[in-house]
């Protein structure tokens, strides 16, 4: 399946990327699996998306837990804990 992936704030800066469209292998079915798959790229990806790092995710504009299933055409965003207000 194909999904749009967005990165915000410190994650966007660390990864040097704000958006990409990716064709996912069949083994990637959830938001958490997508994070692991991206971390496998190594380098800054492995560090910034490591399991112990506080990274939040949204699927189609709603915050979701790692187990959230993905569908083709989804917009998935990864970002650090929010700091507005």
């Amino acid at each position: 399946m194909k999904v749009d992936i967005l990165f915000f704030a410190s994650l966007r800066e660390t990864l040097g990327r704000e958006k990409e469209t990716a064709e996912l292998p069949e083994t990637v079915r959830t938001v958490g699996e997508l994070r692991q798959w991206l971390a496998q790229r190594g380098g800054a990806w492995a560090t910034a998306l490591a399991p112990e790092r506080a990274v939040r995710a949204a699927r189609n504009h709603a915050m979701v837990p790692a187990g959230e299933p993905l569908q083709t055409g989804d917009e998935v965003a990864f970002f650090p804990p929010v700091t507005g207000g």
Partner: peptide
């Protein structure tokens, strides 16, 4: 509203 905004709304301060 403020408590939820601080933790749920996607804003980041630099």
């Amino acid at each position: 509203i403020m408590d939820y905004l601080k933790t749920q709304a996607p804003f980041w301060k630099k």
